[in-house]
């Protein structure tokens, strides 16, 4: 902002005689500081704990890993008895393993190392080995749940991640269709 020239700037400053720091004022200020200072400083230096919010991709990454493991197990179980199911399970395992790898890569890109104060994420639960008779339904249910989780995240995540999860959701929908 331009200051109008006709108003001399210095003219508006208080003169030393009316408001300048007198010896008494300086001492009073110092006394106040010596009381308030340490308390204020302690307040400032308390360790600030920023709560470690889990990355929203952590859950779909772990789910993809669990699904891949489960699908691989089913593929082995069904190999002789139900070749069509074995093929579907193998394809599912391959795609879910690819999802897990890509989601993990994105997680590492954002947080190259786990934060020192964060608890290590709990290990992915080992999915139960389904009976062969119910295996198709179990895999279909798991992949539908994966679809729903990914589709939900599409609405909230920023562009690149939303697109990534959209592809995961679409892929899960194709497997759900093949398994039903």
């Amino acid at each position: 902002m331009l200051i109008p020239r006709q108003t001399p700037i210095l003219a508006r400053w208080p003169t030393v005689s009316e408001a300048g720091p007198t010896r008494r004022r300086v001492l009073a200020a110092a006394a106040t500081l010596s009381v308030a200072g340490p308390a204020a400083l302690t307040g400032c230096t308390l360790p600030v704990r920023i709560p470690e919010v889990p990355d929203p991709l952590e859950s779909p990454a772990r789910r993809a890993e669990a699904d891949a493991t489960q699908a691989s197990t089913v593929a082995q179980l069904a190999a002789g008895a139900d070749p069509a199911l074995a093929a579907a399970a193998r394809a599912l395992a391959t795609d879910r393993r690819t999802h897990a790898a890509t989601l993990r890569a994105e997680l590492r890109r954002v947080r190259p190392r786990p934060a020192p104060h964060s608890a290590s994420p709990p290990a992915a639960p080992q999915p139960a080995t389904p009976e062969l008779t119910s295996a198709r339904g179990v895999l279909a249910q798991a992949v539908r749940a994966a679809h729903d989780e990914a589709a939900g995240l599409v609405m909230t995540l920023p562009g690149y991640r939303a697109a990534l999860l959209a592809s995961v959701a679409a892929c899960c929908a194709t497997h759900a269709a093949l398994l039903s």
């Binding site: 394809a91 890509t102 959209a166 194709t174 269709a177």
Partner: peptide
């Protein structure tokens, strides 16, 4: 999702393997 489903159906029909892709689009 609908496009991915149709592509999968046509791949199955065409005998293409694999019938799915990990990241449609």
């Amino acid at each position: 999702t609908v496009a991915a489903l149709w592509a999968t159906r046509w791949r199955a029909r065409a005998g293409t393997s694999p019938v799915t892709v990990p990241f449609p689009g």
